Amino acid sequence: MTSVDSRLRGPRSPEQRKHEALERLTRDNDVWVATADATGEPCLVPLAFWWDGETVWLSTRVTNPTGRNLSATGKVRLCFGHTRDVVLVHGTARMLTREELPVEVGDAFAAKDGWDPREDHPSYVFFQVIPEVLQAWGTVPEMNGRTLMREGTWLV
């Protein structure tokens, strides 16, 4: 369903938003990843991802700002979709080297994206993002009730 459809019929129910958020996590290829360093300097980059049904897997070089920030703080915000149909995840990330990564996770990540970081530059690592808060909304009428997950527990 498009956000135009939802505007014509009014706000979606929380259950419908959860369903559509999970569909987006399954089918989208890229996500905006927001982090910050110890001084608060923000960093926003698009990355490929894989959703395993419970957590989001990312891969980036441990030497770039996003990799350094995630390694240092573990704090991340992920934004899926566009401004009129957004899924926003606040989560905690843990780093895994390619040697620590379960083979099935690496294989699924590579199959979804068509790119295998394990075969790229040695500085690539993986981050498992555990969602703590998940919000989904389209337009202003959906701002109420946009929080669908809190403290890692679905509210819907």
Rank of each mutant, 00 (worst) to 15 (best):
R17Q: 09
T73G: 15
T97K: 05
N69M: 04
G91M: 00
T73L: 13
R9N: 14
P117W: 00
E20M: 11
R77V: 15
I130G: 07
T2S: 15
G91D: 03
R61E: 11
V62I: 09
E151N: 15
R27D: 08
W32Y: 12
D30T: 10
T60Q: 04
D85P: 02
L155T: 08
L78T: 01
V105W: 02
I130E: 12
L70D: 00
E99S: 15
A108S: 13
D28L: 12
W50T: 01
S3K: 07
E99M: 06
E99R: 13
L148V: 06
V33A: 04
A72P: 01
V156N: 06
Q135A: 14
A21T: 05
E100C: 08
E15T: 14
G145Q: 04
S6D: 09
L44N: 12
T73D: 06
K75E: 15
V129W: 00
A34T: 14
A38Y: 08
V33H: 02
R27C: 06
L8P: 05
V76D: 00
T39Q: 15
D37S: 11
G145T: 09
L25N: 01
Q16D: 14
P42Y: 15
R68C: 07
W57C: 01
Y124K: 07
A93G: 06
S59F: 02
G152D: 09
P141T: 05
D120R: 07
V76K: 00
Q128L: 09
L101V: 09
A72C: 06
M1L: 11
V87S: 00
M95C: 08
G74I: 05
S6V: 11
G114R: 07
E132V: 12
T39L: 14
V105S: 02
Q16C: 07
T39D: 15
S13I: 12
